[in-house]
Amino acid sequence: MMSHIAVHLNPKLFEDPLEFNPWSLTTYTGAVHKFVRSFASKLFGPANLKESLLPDLESAVRESFATWAMNLSIEVKDGISNMIFDLVAKKLIGFNPTKSRELRKNFQEFFQGMVSFPLYFPGTSFYRCMQGRRNVQKTLTDLLKERLSAPGEKYNDLIDQIIEELESENPVIDVNFAVDVLSALLFASFATLSSTLAVGFKFLTDNPKVVKELKYIFEVPHLLPQTVPPNSYKKNLLNSLCQS
């Protein structure tokens, strides 16, 4: 009853964090979708995955492991989230770790408040959620405006491609839509992949035999049994992991 009265007195107290903006991807078709697919494939496509992203991810993993080794304990999911987000933020928008961690805090506030009671009032989880979303939008909007104010400069990240499109004679997107796409890619990078990798860590922890065999493969590859086909060997490892 009280919530019903509150909505009528002040509808702005209740908002939907997932309410799509007018420039959302769902409202576009054709050329816009083609641009988004082309843009996303530059980072997550098979060619870049093999040539750039996986080697960079391996380097990031090694650096993270070296840092984790100096701690008595580590929150794996949070550590993986930082690692993945730092890498994607660097590739996507050219942010260094300091800037990317600050941006990720806002994403985290948004993520944690998505399932909270939608009461937009200071002090509530939902209020922090909406503030996090607005901070993300402001950061990315300011970044795009900064890049647009210096045409011709290249930063070797994927925003360069967005700037080229925005500066073209007939752009298929605008700044608001670009912010929407960048937000989605950044959010997806740590909200999905980090959970998957954290589960993988758990499986490995619960299966010391698999860890031992993996170490055997990578540390002494020349000692692999020649009578066992590589694909069969990998399949046996996978089956051992999945049967836990």
Rank of each mutant, 00 (worst) to 15 (best):
D206E: 09
D142T: 15
F14S: 03
A60Q: 07
L238Q: 04
N82R: 13
V210L: 15
P122A: 01
Y216D: 14
K77L: 03
F177W: 05
G79V: 01
G132W: 06
F39I: 01
D16Q: 13
L18P: 00
P97Q: 02
A60L: 01
E15Q: 15
V228E: 05
T26G: 06
N71R: 15
E146K: 06
P151I: 08
P11G: 09
K209D: 14
L119T: 05
N21Y: 09
G30C: 00
L140A: 05
R104F: 04
S73K: 09
N21T: 12
R133A: 08
M130N: 13
A47P: 07
I217L: 11
M130P: 14
T205I: 00
Y155L: 14
H222W: 06
A60F: 01
E167C: 11
P229C: 05
T205E: 11
A66R: 13
D206K: 01
E75C: 14
N48P: 06
V115T: 13
V88M: 01
M70I: 04
K202C: 02
I93M: 03
A150R: 15
P11H: 04
C129Y: 12
V220Y: 08
F121L: 14
E219I: 13
V32C: 07
N239V: 07
K234I: 10
G94A: 02
Q137D: 13
L18C: 10
K91N: 05
A31D: 12
N10W: 09
F177L: 12
L185N: 02
E165M: 03
A184E: 10
S183I: 03
Y233V: 02
D174V: 00
L54I: 15
D16V: 11
E153S: 13
E102I: 05
K215W: 01
Q108C: 06
P118C: 06
S100V: 07
N231H: 08
I173W: 01
P230W: 10
F95M: 09
F187I: 10
E219Y: 08
T227K: 12
I84A: 11
E164D: 12
E109T: 09
S244N: 10
I159Q: 12
Y120N: 15
V7Y: 15
Q112H: 11
W68Q: 06
S240D: 15
P171M: 03
S52D: 13
A40I: 08
P17Q: 02
S38K: 08
F20Y: 14
A66Q: 12
F44N: 08
Q243N: 09
E15I: 09
M70P: 02
Y233M: 08
N170H: 12
V7A: 14
P22F: 05
G79W: 02
T26S: 13
N156Q: 13
